[in-house]
Amino acid sequence: MDKELQELIKKLLTEKKAEWAIGYEKAYDEFSTRPAFIIDPADTARLIFNKYCINNLGLYLTKLKKNKLAVVCKGCDIATVFELIREKQFKRENVAIIGVACEGVLDKRTNKLLEKCENCQVKQPKGADFTLGNAKNSEKPKSYADVVEFEKKSSKEKLEFWNRQFEKCIRCYACRNVCPVCYCPDCFALRSMPEYLSKHVDADKNKLFHMIRMQHVFGRCTDCKACDTACPVNIPLSMLTKKLAKDAKELFNYESGADTDARPPLSTYDEGDSESDIM
């Protein structure tokens, strides 16, 4: 597939269908890959795709100020691109989505298949402009079993669990910076007037940061796990993003990244919305 990918990108760049292409290349060892930025059509030979291509390249679409981009996407990353298009960050026609069939990616730290890849519905990408390779989608639906299990805990247990997790947090903001939908140029965490977060790091402040970040990406997060895999101290942020996906589905029957014209759940309303819990 690498050869096909290289040829396709070479073609797109030569025909000026894209100014830049974003793909993957080998990083420091055979178990790691990193994003590659290709400007010169003669430079495509370093592009690869394999089971270590863990990054979500949709991230760079809001960072590069270019008119026409081609981006290599796994099926799950396409949801991110769609979500960004829905948020009017760029136009659909300005991005060429190269979907690559994917049998799942491995976490470079544990060498295990990511949990999200187990029941993947988009091994064969949907909605791409070009599709390379073949893969068979999972027949089982996405499982929320671990979230459901966690929800059963008492609030005290949950609190203890998160306190322990956020004690580890070093607030490097890797989770925020790899998040494709966390593109605010002036994040609340950096503002000093008013100051929500000081530079002071403790478990409480760390938790405040994560709570607010999670709230900010609700209905926009595509549960791509970029934050989870980026965390240098292995905080299971997936437990939070998955909860967001579950809530969006259960409360508002909404799935982010599915439709580029949809209204996200919190920026619309329905007069018949449930209010069972409101006194």
Partner: peptide
């Protein structure tokens, strides 16, 4: 270009 400017 690949750098996401986190502080990890």
């Amino acid at each position: 270009l690949p750098c996401v400017k986190c502080g990890a």
